[in-house]
Design a protein around this nucleic acid. Structure first.
Length: 269
DNA sequence: TAGAAATGTTTAG
DNA sequence: TAAACCTTTCTAT
């Protein structure tokens, strides 16, 4: 689940449910016991995301969570379920209506309490996030334009661009007819401006829908109503299937340790 | 129903 | 480059 849109959504949800009130923080599994004890019953000011990172402000301390590949939150109202398995962290609060809300965190890569300067350190290593308001993609192009590295690799580099993962990488390249193997410096400013604007649109749609949908209605089997799972993407996870535009078989190859998908005709080098 | 693969990053070698 | 993290989703049987 977790590309930038997922974290943005979680931040909004957690702010609505828990912020402005004290939070009961526990670590049933025990591995986050010290951090939980530190934050327990403190006032949560707000939760925000940057790229794929999630930050919750508790006074001077900030809880930093990175879901990695497996991490997930499950949230509900009323009485929380009896803890089971590797439940790293649980939040319980009164909720906006006083009816009780809870959220369970399992399997994250990172769950730690940070001081302000440590938060700044993380932010300093991240490129612009298309989901953040008043953010300019030109900063990313500066890095891209002077790199010989393939654009398919640069898009996954969080210090170039924050929040884009394997699905958005494959889909944005397809939508702009750019080969993943083209060197960064072969992507001119006009082309990048278009890709950035498109990322903003697609990722905002991802926040709204709670999933990644990149196909235009005219390229789906079913043009109206809910988008079918099999219709949501142009190339991601469509190895061997015909390209929705030209019919050529979609190809796959590992690039920087991740499966890359592209149409060799629509995205010719 | 079981097994593989997965939207990601860090650490070890 | 590979392993670890250890949950969810997809696919094959």
């Amino acid at each position: 689940m977790p590309e930038g849109h997922t974290l943005f959504r979680l931040a909004k949800e957690q702010t609505e449910l828990f912020a402005g009130r004290p939070v009961h923080v526990t670590s049933p599994q025990g591995r986050f016991a010290a951090g939980a004890a530190l934050l327990d019953e403190r006032l949560l000011e707000g939760v925000w995301s940057y790229g794929k990172h999630l930050f919750a402000d508790f006074g001077p301390d900030t809880l930093h969570v990175h879901l990695g590949l497996y991490g997930n939150y499950v949230t509900g109202t009323g009485h929380p379920p009896v803890p089971r398995g590797a439940l790293l962290m649980r939040w319980e609060g009164p909720g906006p209506d006083g009816e009780g809300v809870w959220t369970d965190l399992r399997g994250p890569t990172v769950c730690e309490v940070l001081a302000p300067e440590e938060v700044d350190g993380i932010l300093g290593r991240l490129g612009p996030d298309p989901l953040r308001p008043r953010t300019n993609g030109a900063l990313a192009h500066r890095r891209i334009a002077r790199s010989r590295t393939a654009i398919g690799a640069l898009l996954m580099d969080q210090s170039v661009l924050a929040g884009v993962g394997n699905v958005y990488r494959a889909e944005i390249l397809f939508r702009h007819n750019v080969s993943p193997f083209r060197p960064g410096r072969g992507v001119d400013e006009a082309q990048w401006t278009g890709m950035w604007a498109d990322l903003v649109t697609l990722m905002r749609a991802g926040v709204r829908l709670g999933r990644i949908v990149t196909t235009r209605p005219e390229h789906r089997a079913r043009k109206r109503g809910t988008v079918q799972r099999t219709d949501a993407h142009y190339v991601y996870r469509r190895t061997g299937l015909p390209c929705r535009i030209c019919g050529t078989e979609v190809r796959t190859e590992v690039m920087v340790g991740r499966n890359l998908y592209w149409c060799p005709v629509c995205q010719a080098l």
